[in-house]
């Protein structure tokens, strides 16, 4: 096993620092929002994690295509890392959104297009891992994973568009205005600073976690290879 590269160590430290700064900006620096109070502060992390989550799912679909074309295991490792880290971040997004919705909308959950699409997307990627778990052969696992990541990446946007149709006909009193209001509440300059820094911070953390996860996959491949060698 090659030792940990210095760049990764630096990235680890940078990640911890930016996470700390983002937390400070969200909790202390940004002013308290008048209508919703303190709970609005989760918004910065909510958007930050949602951003990296969505980027990760797009990356997974793209690396799925890259794998199918090149058959290079490197892309498979990249894809697994993207899906896994994104699923984790997206889980945070959903939970934070739900926690925010409780005082803001007076409910933990509504079937608003964003929420529903988020839930369906999360289920797709949980299914992705169940699919991979059922396959022994690494090549086949990689191929099937790539195909499913591609399908998931394509169907999620259509899901969003379809669910939006339901709402134009059946307006839900709660979600409707508030979902729009989320981007619409007047962000002060300080809030904007916290907001954009959170996006930046989570991008850095995402890259760092991806890197670790990719290294884990390489290690795993090595172990599997060795197992074959020894048993033969």
């Amino acid at each position: 096993m090659q030792s940990k590269p210095i760049a990764l160590t630096i990235l680890d430290i940078v990640s911890i620092i930016v996470l700390g700064v983002a937390t400070y900006l969200a909790l202390v620096f940004a002013p308290t929002e008048l209508v919703m109070g303190d709970v609005q502060r989760v918004f910065y992390f909510h958007v930050g994690t949602a951003w990296v989550g969505l980027v990760g799912f797009v990356l997974a679909a793209v690396s799925g295509i890259a794998y199918l074309i090149t058959k290079n295991m490197k892309w498979d490792r990249f894809e697994v890392a993207a899906v896994e880290v994104s699923t984790m971040f997206f889980f945070i997004t959903i939970v934070l959104g739900s926690i925010w919705a409780r005082p803001a909308w007076n409910t933990w959950w509504t079937w608003d297009p964003r929420l529903t699409t988020a839930a369906v997307t999360e289920l797709i990627y949980i299914a992705y891992f169940m699919l991979r778990q059922g396959i022994e052969d690494p090549d086949k696992r990689a191929r099937f994973g790539a195909v499913y990541a591609l399908l998931g990446g394509l169907s999620a946007p259509i899901t969003f568009m379809v669910i939006r149709l339901f709402r134009t006909i059946h307006p839900v009193v709660i979600g409707n205005a508030s979902a729009e209001a989320q981007g619409g509440f007047d962000m002060t300059a300080d809030m904007r600073t916290a907001f954009f820094f959170a996006l930046f911070a989570f991008t850095v953390i995402f890259i760092d976690m991806m890197w670790h996860r990719i290294r884990l996959s390489s290690l795993q491949e090595k172990v599997e290879e060795l197992k074959l060698n020894v048993s033969m």
Binding site: T23, L27, T32, L34, V35, M36, G37, D38, V39, Q40, R41, V42, F45, T49, V85, M88, F91, I92, V95, L96, I99, W100, R102, P103, I205, M209, H212
Partner: peptide
């Protein structure tokens, strides 16, 4: 103006966010 007190939700949110990342790492 008095803010609505929703700090309990906020704390829960941040605890869960950090816990999830921690567990993953």
């Amino acid at each position: 103006e008095t803010f609505p007190d929703t700090s309990g939700y906020m704390i829960a949110g941040f605890v869960i966010a950090f816990a999830t990342m921690g567990i993953y790492i």
